[in-house]
Design a protein around this nucleic acid. Structure first.
Lengths: 195, 195
DNA sequence: CCAACATACGGAACGTCGTTCCGGATGCCA
DNA sequence: TGGCATCCGGAACGACGTTCCGTATGTTGG
């Protein structure tokens, strides 16, 4: 993203050094805690790991959702950017869609509790919900449109519905070896095909 | 279920009248509260509705899951019993399976928060999880086997996986008019068909 | 180098929740 | 009607997310 102001002076006079240090420590601590205990890990645990007080968490990340987004932003961006690339490289739009959804599923199933948080109607997770949707729905829409235009899938499901369905199927994956979210998503995508 | 003891005397000497009255009041209050506020409604709200103290809830229903099971037991039993009936009445096993899953989905999407509670790994919901599985997996298995035997669907998904997938797809249905769980379940079942 | 001020910090405090506990009330039976 | 097992209400506890504020510390102009 380019700066809004084209002038040379920065209107935000740079944060204090300890604040920058703590923000980084918090991101690292949260990432580690999410791996160990899932995204539902108590806020106090993250604070202890980072060696800061709980107040410091809320100063940097107004809601838990903001912290989750900050931790996973890079991976979500990478997923979003992979969409057009796959569409360009794959043999068919449907193959690109299937590969892209695999990427999304791989991301979700390795983040304990994230898929569940994504679907939660708790107000605290609204930012999370919104970020995923804003970033991924347009990409999915593009892939879906291309596949429909190529007459490979039925036109009766929108990107929002598909993403929520895939996200839902990923809930609880990783907790239970008997539940294979990937296979179910494959079946769902298979069900989309025209026959 | 038949009684274990075939004798005429009941070894449990019948509960006190106020206890029976309160248990009924609690079931009614919980059912109403679940409709209004979902199965995650605070325990205190149910107690107020029933006109009892919170201690009374826990005496009759040791965990929140037991209360949920008690409220929905009849509907779950009806769903389980519908399986063999559909198999006998339908033209094909796959049609029976599709209709049975429709029944299950109709049940889940009208109970706010139930599908999410079903997949929760919270220990408090283990009873709920176990009851659904014990009761419905065998029925689903029977339908699945029949459809596989008739060469209508692929044999690569077990009843447990299918039920969890369907349950997952029902999470959040009813909160968001843009999300149509029924259609996604239909796509999933369509993906099961041999082609 | 040193104030003095904005900025940031820590953790106590608050409200909500599920769950447990126990002194007292109440139905039941002799 | 008395006595006792059963059951009740709601206070109490611990965990949690979130807010608040007295204190500490970096920054910057002199």
């Amino acid at each position: 993203m380019a700066d809004i102001d084209s002038g040379s002076e920065q209107p935000v006079p740079r944060k204090r050094a300890d604040a920058r240090r703590n923000e980084k420590a918090l991101l690292d601590a949260a990432a580690a805690a999410f791996v160990t205990s899932g995204v539902d890990v108590p806020v106090r645990d993250i604070a202890v790991r980072a060696g800061v007080g709980v107040g410091t968490i809320y100063r940097h990340f107004p809601s838990r959702a903001d912290l989750i987004v900050a931790v996973y932003r890079h991976q979500i961006e990478a997923c979003a950017e992979a969409g057009p690339a796959l569409l360009a490289d794959s043999d068919t739009p449907h193959a690109a869609l299937a590969q892209w959804i695999d990427l999304f599923v791989d991301f979700l199933v390795t983040k304990h509790g994230l898929a569940a948080a994504l679907q939660s109607d708790d107000a605290a997770f609204q930012t999370l919900h919104a970020y995923f949707l804003d970033r991924l729905v347009p990409v999915c829409d593009q892939l879906l449109d291309a596949a429909v235009a190529a007459d490979e899938i039925r036109p009766d499901l929108d990107a929002y519905g598909l993403l929520r369905g895939v996200g839902n199927l990923c809930i609880g994956a990783g907790n239970d070896p008997r539940y294979d979210a990937r296979r179910l998503v494959d079946l769902l995508v298979a069900g989309l095909r025209v026959r």
